[in-house]
């Protein structure tokens, strides 16, 4: 079966400085630097990594809002890397995004109904206003806002953070997309509401067999939720595998370090904490060889020289580290 989404060494580099008239900063920000990935239909893949590792840039590139520097994006078997105009707009119907900040991602002057109907308006669907309203109400109910009628005329400032995020989710669902990108959809919400929104996403996946790419920097939110986990470091995926495999048996030293920082309730499972040394990485001047070696607690000389390829550990699990080969 063709995967819902396939990325082939996708790269997105930004110019480091503003291009001046006389001098141009030749350096590049390697925000996304060679990502190859397949996501199956109906799968929830969690993309985990520290701030600045390129998660949001990857999402924006998938949405066609940033043009990839190189590489390919295949969407349900078709290459959509270079789509423009109407074809690109059509692609937008099938891939939708939920943003991090529900307070900022709704226009303060648009009612809930207008916000949820906006995708229909943009794509000139259901021009009949009664049919449009039925669809909007359906989407609001699917997003857990009941009774939906009572929300239609409200403005964002009359909603709580959790309700706003549900409105955003309803607006993302109204076009019935096949892929949902969720960029830290719960990190701005109260802890008590996070679980509700995560449950909602899981429920939507179960009901509609939608594919969800879930971006986060927090292992805690995804353990019970994702099918697979991909760990990102400086624009690359350094380890990917089924949630169980990655959480139980992390192979890449970076994953191990991240996991050792997650509080574990059972003291017997608690490992020795690995503290990452050094600075947060800078995606402009990439280290030679393995890009993690300056911070790696177990780095060897060869790590300085060779950029490690992804090493398969099982049918589903792989890690990009020279040391796992042994």
């Amino acid at each position: 079966m063709t995967p819902a989404l396939r990325l082939v060494s996708l790269k997105k580099h930004f110019a480091a400085g503003r291009a001046g008239f006389f001098h141009r900063d030749p350096r590049l920000v390697h925000a996304v630097d060679g990502i190859s990935l397949e996501v199956a239909h109906g799968e929830i893949l969690a993309l985990v990594g520290e701030s600045g590792c390129g998660k949001s840039t990857l999402a924006l590139t998938l949405l066609g809002l940033e043009k990839p520097t190189s590489g390919e994006i295949h969407f349900e078997g078709t290459d959509v890397t270079h789509l423009r105009g109407a074809a690109l707009k059509d692609m937008h119907r099938r891939i939708q995004m939920v943003f991090q900040d529900p307070y900022e991602s709704l226009n303060p002057m648009m009612t809930v109904e207008e916000a949820v109907a906006e995708p229909l308006e943009v794509h000139s669907l259901l021009k009949n206003s009664a049919a449009r309203r039925t669809r909007v109400i359906q989407a609001l109910e699917d997003a857990g806002l009941k009774p939906a009628d009572s929300f239609l005329d409200r403005l964002p400032h009359q909603l709580s953070g959790g309700q706003r995020q549900r409105v955003v989710i309803a607006a993302a669902l109204v076009l019935e997309p096949t892929i949902l990108l969720a960029d830290e959809p719960v990190s701005m919400l109260d802890v008590s509401i996070r679980a509700e929104i995560l449950n909602l996403l899981a429920e939507i996946r179960a009901r509609r067999s939608i594919t969800i790419l879930f971006i986060t920097h927090d292992f805690g939110t995804i353990a019970h939720f994702a099918d697979r986990i991909a760990v990102m470091y400086l624009g690359r995926i350094v380890e990917i595998g089924a949630t169980e495999e990655v959480l139980r048996d992390p192979q890449h030293p970076y994953t191990q370090a991240l996991l050792s920082a997650v509080p574990v309730p059972n003291p017997r499972l608690r490992q020795k904490r690995l503290i990452l040394q050094g600075e947060t990485p800078n995606p402009i001047d990439l280290p030679s060889g393995c890009r993690f070696h300056p911070r790696c607690p177990v780095a060897e000389d060869r790590c300085r020289l060779t950029d490690p390829p992804a090493v398969p550990l099982s049918a589903t699990h792989s890690a990009a580290c020279l040391l796992v080969e042994d």
Binding site: L65, H92, E118, V122, H123
Partner: peptide, 8 residues
């Protein structure tokens, strides 16, 4: 940005 992501 969200409107652009819809394809507006």
């Amino acid at each position: 940005l969200r409107a652009r992501s819809i394809g507006a």
